[in-house]
Computed example of a mutant assay.
Amino acid sequence: MTTNTHNTNTIDVVSYCRVSTRGQGESGLGLEAQLEYINRAAQQNGWNIVGSFVDVVSGKLAIEDRPEGAKALAMCKELKAQLVVAKLDRLSRSVHHIARLMEETEFKVATMPHAKTFELHLFAALAQQEREFISQRTKETLATLKARAESGHVESVEKIARRTEALEKGRTNANRAKGTEAVKERSKLWMESVRDPIDLCIRKGGRTLQQVADCLNGKGITTSRGGKWSAIQVSRVMQNLALTFPSKEEVL
């Protein structure tokens, strides 16, 4: 039987999850993992979850501008509770938004339950800087390729020529190329959708590829083709996602 009584060390928290697309929200991809992160952190740290909200919306919007996000913040204020999210990017990918939220509401991150405000702000700043760096590097690489092609660099000229030729071959080849790109994009999105479930299986004690496969199968999570997981499939996906098992020191 559940009661409202809890010890003085217990912190009341409001759970908040966000998925980026309606399809992802309806299928539960990503959402189930977020909820499990939050629930496990609550159990391990003595947090009392007094409310739960889920948004299906882009992370570009500040949380106060999201339908369920606004309700979650209102409940935090009303109950003097702290907001809790699975990962920092569920709040926002913008350092500005996160910094502003820090001034108005206390919040916790389930994957970093003991992180202080300064540490969370620093982590958000580094993540944003990395995204901006990758974007800028991509633009610079394309500019360099064009400059080399214009100066007569053979390999660059050939790369530009192949791209131009593909565009000039007509609608059929263009559609074929679009189809290939769409397949790659779907594969990439699927890979990201199983990142958190695999990570959770490892955090729960999975120390071999087969144990992770059994964990995923037990959760009802299927492979990209809708089948059961094997150790080999887990190995391939973990390599693509750069996921690894913890070292013995980390386990201890």
Rank of each mutant, 00 (worst) to 15 (best):
N7G: 13
D89H: 02
G206F: 06
M75L: 15
K108D: 05
Y37I: 00
A149Y: 07
L35C: 12
K228S: 08
G218C: 04
G206R: 02
S193Q: 09
A177M: 15
T208S: 12
T164V: 15
R93W: 00
T3D: 11
R22Y: 12
K116T: 14
G59C: 03
A231I: 08
A86C: 07
Q82H: 05
L35M: 06
T172D: 15
I63F: 04
T21F: 02
I202P: 02
V84G: 05
A231Y: 03
E249M: 09
Q34G: 01
A182Q: 15
L31A: 12
D196C: 04
L31S: 00
S224Y: 06
E32C: 10
Q210P: 01
D196I: 10
W47T: 03
E249Y: 13
A74C: 03
N175V: 09
K116H: 06
L83C: 00
S20P: 07
V84I: 07
L252V: 14
S224V: 11
S135K: 12
W190H: 04
Q211M: 09
T144A: 15
N48D: 10
V95L: 09
A70R: 07
M238Q: 06
T164Q: 08
N217S: 04
T180Q: 15
G23F: 07
R18I: 02
D55K: 02
Q43M: 15
M102S: 14
N217Y: 04
V84N: 09
H114K: 10
G69N: 10
T180I: 10
T180V: 09
T117C: 08
R137P: 06
G28K: 07
I198E: 01
D65K: 13
C215P: 01
G205Y: 03
I198G: 00
A166L: 13
L35A: 12
G227V: 00
Q210T: 04
R195E: 06
E106W: 01
V237T: 06
I63Q: 08
D214W: 02
A242T: 12
K178A: 14
E26G: 08
V212C: 04
E140W: 12
E104S: 14
N9S: 09
K60E: 10
I11A: 12
L200C: 03
L61G: 02
A110V: 08
R176F: 14
I63W: 02
D12S: 14
A115W: 01
N217K: 02
T222W: 06
G152E: 12
T244E: 12
Q82W: 04
V13D: 03
K204M: 12
I98M: 06
T244H: 08
R100D: 13
S187D: 10
D214M: 05
Y16G: 08
E78K: 15
A72V: 06
A62L: 01
R18D: 08
K219F: 03
L189S: 11
V212F: 12
M75I: 14
A110P: 07
K204G: 05
F245P: 05
K108M: 05
M238T: 04
V154W: 03
E165P: 00
K169N: 05
A125P: 07
S193N: 11
E192R: 10
K60Q: 11
D12F: 00
L241Q: 07
L61F: 14
T180N: 14
T5E: 13
R195W: 06
H97P: 05
A86H: 05
A110K: 11
